[in-house]
Simulated assay, not measured.
Amino acid sequence: MSNPKKKSLSDLGGIMYSTDPSFNYEHEQESVEETVPNNQQDLRVTLDRKNRGGKAVTLITGYRGSAAELETLSKMLKTKCGVGGGAKDGEMIIQGDFRDKVVLILQKEGFKVKKSGG
């Protein structure tokens, strides 16, 4: 049985040491995010200029699903727009102002999409 690597003492839930030879620390199971069907996803597409050195990016928020699927969707959007970007924490960033194009692409994929913000 392999134990996932703990990053700090707080990850152990306060247990630092046990003298009981039969003690076995029980790990909490990480919750696996279930993928919500595309037609039930409610995505928001905005233009963001804050903290980006004056550069504008298209920000897609509201994605619910696994990190791998988020990365796959982000890669597809970056490829179709021909630009760079990234994905993490349920958000996708596409470099440049591609709001209209991203909305059309996501609608073709079956997502519920709204443009929000300026």
Rank of each mutant, 00 (worst) to 15 (best):
Q107M: 13
N3K: 14
V102P: 01
D42W: 03
S22H: 11
E30H: 11
G62W: 00
K78G: 09
T72K: 14
R44T: 07
K78N: 11
D48L: 07
C81T: 14
G13L: 04
G13M: 04
N38Y: 12
V32S: 06
L12G: 05
E69V: 08
A87W: 03
G90T: 06
T46N: 05
C81G: 01
G110L: 11
T58K: 01
G110S: 12
G118T: 07
L9E: 09
G110C: 12
G54M: 03
G62E: 00
K6P: 00
K50N: 09
T72G: 04
G118S: 13
G13S: 08
A56Y: 06
H27Q: 07
Q95P: 00
S10Y: 05
T35A: 15
S22Q: 13
T72C: 02
E28P: 01
S66W: 01
V45C: 03
T79N: 14
L106A: 10
S116Y: 04
S2E: 14
G82L: 08
I60F: 02
L104N: 15
A87C: 08
S18K: 04
G53Q: 06
T19C: 02
T79L: 14
L12K: 06
K50A: 11
T79V: 12
I105D: 02
S22Y: 11
G62K: 00
G96Y: 09
R52E: 11
Y17Q: 11
G85S: 07
I15K: 12
I94D: 04
M92N: 01
M92E: 00
